[in-house]
Write a protein that binds this DNA or RNA. Structure first.
Lengths: 416, 416
DNA sequence: GGGGTTAGGAAAGGGGGTTTACGAAGTCCG
DNA sequence: CGGACTTCGTAAACCCCCTTTCCTAACCCC
């Protein structure tokens, strides 16, 4: 059983303070203390650390009611760069962020179905990472880390992609392969958790101790924020919600079971919902998820009845599933994230809210908000970069002595 | 957002140490340190605290390989009493425990359906609590607390039963009502969480940071142990798993929805499974859940094909539901608890294991054990009493000065 | 240019856990 | 039978964390 140490408190507080600074960028220590609930002294210490790391800078002063002006700090955008890599079935998407998490450069590599070998994927990642660094004109030393999101089960400690269903990878030592080509610190995890962390730091889950981040893309999952941090489970595979049975003996899922949530509310599932409702619909682009979802989104805008009905139908499944999560976790907020959610937007959320309200118990429902992710870019990239940010921040904790002289080691009076 | 303080660490460690002592009763500080991962010094401090509280006592010595013997400590059974109250639809069950959590006295009050008013229920509880105290011949001052488990949504802070479906209670200030009649410290929560805590302290979840306690009774729920402690959610209603949709548009549930897990694997649901399979079965006692489940259990023992099939069928639903929990939480262990699980026992668990294995993803499945609760008595009573124990232990943390003279508290040399 | 006010830093203080040192209480063996 | 060796358990020193308190810095106003 993992034991919590007082160090963890410091780390959590450091995260919290930096989150707050990034969110409300020019801000004062006073404001930070109020927002985080920490004492002024602690905030000052943490701000001092971050200043020393050059992650933030002092940017001026702000009038205070008649007294000494408040010093303002802001993210030091040029204090370093973070890279987020989103590996998906058909593409590798890489973004380079400054410390304010603005995108400075982007690169995308298309991956053809035949290129499913790990080495090929590593090649794509390496190329794209090189590209964004070059584009942004950043010197290598300023890259604080690279977060990599790869689908499937990931062992963070060993950096092994234990199982990636898309390419039938088994126990691929991805971290080692990447390390050979990329010199920056690497952090590996899966998109589910990346998106959840992005939401925790920069999105709708910020400042919430309990949140569920529902990931609606080609696949479906639920990142769990519990007790203020990401819940990973015992083998880092928590959050696999896509294969929850929602219709016993329902649609066949590629996982081998029937009736998984994913087969109804993932992009292919939504296509199927559309096809079942209106087989000849012009909204349907048989081989193209992205186009079909985009067409549905367009349809919603012009109140196309078929589009509305498909969304309503999808929301019915999604609402039932989310209601289960609300009952089970009693979260403060449920965030709908990823590209399908972003595309279908508020109309989907509104339908989902209604559907959830029909299914969930009143008390947990009353405590829960259901919102769309406010994150405008690819949340998996952002989340992956956030892992890198967390990593960079974590290593601050590594108190490496500081007693430079290492005095009198000789004190050893060897016994025996 | 709740902030963790270093005090919480101490509390958690105190819990852990006491748990370990209760579990392995005569035990040494060495063993405790090894089991908890704490340093010897910390264990010694905590043991010292518990000794001073008279919750444990020194009970002798144990040979150590050639050196000073280890001092042994054990629970001081007579150091206090804890009372657990399990309020259910048709009965109020009260047990009085010593500090080793042995049952010293029991009382049961039957509740007739007409007696659903809170005052009547309070009367039953008061009577039963008085009864167990009298039976056990305990002086009032020795009762450390009374834990009360009441179905539905409970606000622990205010002690209000916000909603209890059985009796249509709304915002009943149960704690206040009980306080008028019961002088001991009171702790209120619901059976779901009581059972989970019982399992965490004394059952199959002991020492596990992540566990799911599936509660199979008339109602169904899932107590969540996450990060070493009970997960309550933002309004203390986490764990409501019974109304998870498992069959879209399935059986009508009293919650108003269709296809809830509870309607398939709760005791009434199992009866329905039986009725659907074999309408005229002699196993069926139409108006008596307890008798029907008992008959099924008997049937299993003699390999009655109908009983086997009913259990298999129930396990099919249950397995699908539990697989979802395994995927979602990635727990170390799933514990099947409460009277239905106890009655159907290993045959049910074996079927459930198979069913879960069919539905869950391989990786989380590999990390999860599915076991029957080892707790022999009413787990809700035990869990309620555990809340009282936690409460008593918590108030130790209230260091109010300590500048009290009280030196040399009676220099009692430990009895040889 | 003093008083009043507010910000921010330094020091003290209260928790917590661990490491180290040392006395206590046995065993082993000459 | 007593010293040497072992092992336990406590006390003290140390490090980490957060908060409270005190004091100085910096600005406003009169």
């Amino acid at each position: 059983m993992k034991r919590g140490t007082s160090r963890d408190i410091r780390t959590a507080n450091r995260y919290e303070v930096l989150r707050q600074i990034i969110a409300a960028s020019p801000t004062s220590r006073q404001e930070l203390a109020a927002a985080t609930g920490l004492s002024l002294a602690t905030v000052a210490t943490l701000v001092g650390e971050l200043l020393e790391l050059r992650m933030i800078t002092e940017v001026g002063f702000e009038d205070s009611a008649g007294g000494r002006p408040r010093g303002l700090v802001a993210v030091n955008a040029s204090g370093g760069a973070l890279i987020g890599v989103d590996i998906a079935e058909t593409y590798v998407h890489v973004e380079l962020f400054d410390l304010a998490l603005n995108v400075l450069a982007r690169a995308e590599e298309n991956v053809r179905p035949v290129e499913s070998r790990p080495e090929q994927m590593v090649g794509h990642v390496t190329a794209a990472v090189g590209s964004v660094v070059a584009q942004a004109g950043i010197e290598g030393a300023r890259v604080l880390g690279v977060g990599v999101s790869v689908p499937g089960q990931v062992d963070r400690a060993t950096g092994i992609a234990e199982y990636a269903p898309n390419w039938d990878w088994h126990d691929v030592p991805l971290l080692d392969l990447l390390t050979e080509h990329i010199a920056y610190p690497l952090y590996l995890d899966n998109p589910l958790r990346a998106v959840a962390v992005a939401e925790l730091w920069f999105g709708a889950a910020r400042g919430r101790g309990n949140a569920v981040v529902v990931n609606l893309g080609t696949g479906v999952g639920a990142g769990l924020i519990l007790g203020g941090g990401l819940h990973r489970g015992v083998s880092n595979s928590a959050g696999e919600w896509g294969h929850t049975t929602i219709v016993l003996d329902g649609r066949l899922c590629h996982c081998g079971n029937h009736g998984c949530v994913e087969t109804y509310v993932g992009a292919p599932g939504i296509m199927l919902n559309l096809r079942e409702l209106s087989p000849g619909s012009t909204l349907l682009h048989p081989e193209d998820q992205t186009a079909t979802i985009a067409a549905l989104a367009q349809g919603l805008l012009r109140h196309d009845p078929v589009a509305l009905e498909v969304v309503r139908n999808t929301a019915r499944y999604l609402g039932a599933g989310i209601a289960d999560l609300v009952n089970l976790f009693n979260p403060e907020v449920v965030v709908l994230s990823s590209w399908v959610a972003a595309a279908l937007g508020e109309p989907l959320v509104a339908e989902v809210r209604e559907a959830v309200a029909r299914h969930a118990l009143p008390r947990p429902m009353a405590a829960t908000e259901i919102v769309l992710s406010p994150i405008p870019t690819d949340p998996a990239c952002l989340g992956a970069a956030t892992f890198a940010l967390e990593g960079a921040l974590q290593s601050v904790g590594q108190r490496n002595g500081k007693k430079r002289s290492t005095p009198a080691r000789s004190r050893t009076a060897p016994p025996s």
